[in-house]
Design a binder for these strands. Sequence first.
DNA 1: CCAAAAGTGTTCTTTATACACCCATGT
DNA 2: ACATGGGTGTATAAAGAACACTTTTGG
Lengths: 236, 236
Amino acid sequence: MPGQYLAAMYTYQYPRPALTVDCVIFGLGDESLKVLLIQRAHDPFAGRWAFPGGFVDMDEPTETAARRELWEETGIEDMFMEQLYTFSAVDRDPRERVVSVAYFALVKLANYKVTPGSDAQRAEWFPVSQLPPLAFDHDEIFKVALARLKGKVRYQPIGFELLPEKFTLGQLQRMYELILGRELDKRNFRKKILGMGLLLPLPERQKGVSHRAATLYQFDRAKYKALEASGFMFEI
Amino acid sequence: MPGQYLAAMYTYQYPRPALTVDCVIFGLGDESLKVLLIQRAHDPFAGRWAFPGGFVDMDEPTETAARRELWEETGIEDMFMEQLYTFSAVDRDPRERVVSVAYFALVKLANYKVTPGSDAQRAEWFPVSQLPPLAFDHDEIFKVALARLKGKVRYQPIGFELLPEKFTLGQLQRMYELILGRELDKRNFRKKILGMGLLLPLPERQKGVSHRAATLYQFDRAKYKALEASGFMFEI
DNA sequence: CCAAAAGTGTTCTTTATACACCCATGT
DNA sequence: ACATGGGTGTATAAAGAACACTTTTGG
């Protein structure tokens, strides 16, 4: 990184904000949409809950920083992630000027059933409708993240990131109902989603349920890519 | 700003990326959608065109920085602006690590007909289909900005920000056609947009045109706010 | 046999699309 | 008179919304 020296030559005279990342991770519980929070060990806001995050290193882009922090703090990796928004209010951190690039992630909660927490830190999944008061401006970050999820889930097939690889149409519909906050008509839903031709029915069926076993489906990513390229628009 | 002292106490040991803003400003010409570029006076990329932008001060949020830089470099103010994306590739600036928060702005070009340029800098409006090679990663920033504009203009009434306060339905339709890159049916377009009840017909008509004078309309922002709050979705 | 979710079609309403001619104005 | 864009309605097709019963499985 020759930049280190050049930085001094060109710009050392200007103070710079600190740069951090914060991650809003959504997971799908049995009865609610959830987000992962970490309890802060130190001041400011010691004891309060906050989204996992941390400082951006000089040799990594912000998304890499977000994935690294998430892995360090929770052990979660390889999830769907996209940039959410950059929060830069001058007083958002009481210590000093900190600008934070927030990320928005979706995980298959079944893969992380046990409450995460690698350091001494406590991490816990909270239903989105029952969040404790959050540190810093994380309440605002959460609002933006939830709005993004609700807005996006209808027009891009990101909802599948919350489900296991193999899922039933019932699970899929419940996922949409939980996120959108309203009920969907079962027959119309199935007609629409199957009509897209993006769900591969598997030769397997659900097991161990005390009712008729449902067909398992898989989302056909390759087919979606192809259709998307030729102008197809996903919509629920 | 007590943060200045605290910053030294807590975090002076970590190097920080520089933080800048860049603004992609769209305006509507007679025959094309345009963006404002500034020709760089100094290295790196001396002589190349780039989006206006600059460093974020310690006492201003990024959007304020974007508006300030834009005013300083072009004299444009009070335009529609929203955050676009934060670009953080490690080598995006050859001198040192610079993270840039890009903004996306829409202006009523008629108000800025003369080529702007307040400093010694040259500023010019370029049709989006004929951009010169840009400095830094600004080609990528532009791609993201144009995609955002195309995607958003259909679902939010931001297109009006590109037109004068009073406009004809012909101007409105041409605006959508230029941005979306396809022709719209005149009768269907009028039926749809007038059907929303968001356009106030004015008792005035177009003047000095060598054809039948069109009715002038105004976008009813108050009514849109009300409808939006009760679940109405704008769509072209 | 009961509970619980899976699975399945049709009707009606709403919205989208395709399409052609006369009108007003300035040159 | 002609060139230019303004202004108007209808018919057809497609998509969305509403709606109820039978099937399968485990307990």
